[in-house]
């Protein structure tokens, strides 16, 4: 009984604290990316360093991004936007790397892509996924996304093809959101 009381009192206090702070903050689908430099170097072989950039997302920006992307941002995607500026040996910007995450059928699908200075996709890799269908991991599908940018959001859906698997839809949906957010938030 004593241990039960010890459990309940701090538990209720803790739950209240977390509930008060958790509105829109649950980050189920935030990407966990170990050794980011490995993928960064593949997309930007000439890069010699990078800088983490975090931008707050205002309510107006959320609305603008959702309108452009054609769908709602997930919890955890609505408050802060993060990307990495890739730099050459002289500190000059080469482009950006974005770690994205989108809800799949069996958990989050995490992928990483690069944008060159013209804001076009110049490389994309799936980092982690638990989907049973692996079509979205195939190089043929991923390479079809290269060269696309914020001006191609409406055309991206066509790249899913006739076989609309959860993985392909998630990657295209996630990419649309990230491109819209980058256009809205990155100077």
């Amino acid at each position: 009984m004593r241990s039960l009381a010890r459990f309940i009192i701090p538990g209720v206090a803790l739950a209240s604290w977390l509930a008060a702070g958790s509105a829109g903050a649950e980050e189920k689908y935030i990407c966990v990316w170990r050794n980011p430099e490995r993928t960064m170097r593949r997309i930007f072989p000439q890069a010699r360093d990078y800088r983490t950039v975090t931008r707050p997302i205002s309510a107006a920006a959320v609305a603008a991004i959702e309108a452009k992307a054609g769908g709602p941002l997930l919890p955890g995607q609505r408050e802060q936007y993060q990307y990495y500026e890739m730099l050459d040996a002289g500190g000059k910007r080469l482009g950006a790397i974005i770690a994205a995450s989108q809800k799949g059928e069996y958990g989050a699908i995490e992928f990483v892509f690069g944008l060159d200075l013209s804001r076009s996709v110049n490389g994309i890799y799936i980092q982690r996924a638990r989907e049973r269908d692996g079509d979205f991991k195939k190089r043929e599908f991923l390479d079809s996304l290269l060269g696309r940018g914020p001006g191609d959001l409406k055309a991206l859906d066509a790249l899913i093809g006739e076989k609309r698997t959860t993985g392909k839809v998630a990657v295209v949906t996630g990419l649309k959101k990230e491109l819209a957010a980058f256009a809205e938030l990155a100077p």
Binding site: L18, G21, S22, A25, E27, I30, T54, G76, E79, Q80
Partner: peptide
């Protein structure tokens, strides 16, 4: 188990 995150 519950986790909560923020960044700025």
């Amino acid at each position: 188990y519950y986790s909560w995150s923020r960044s700025r």
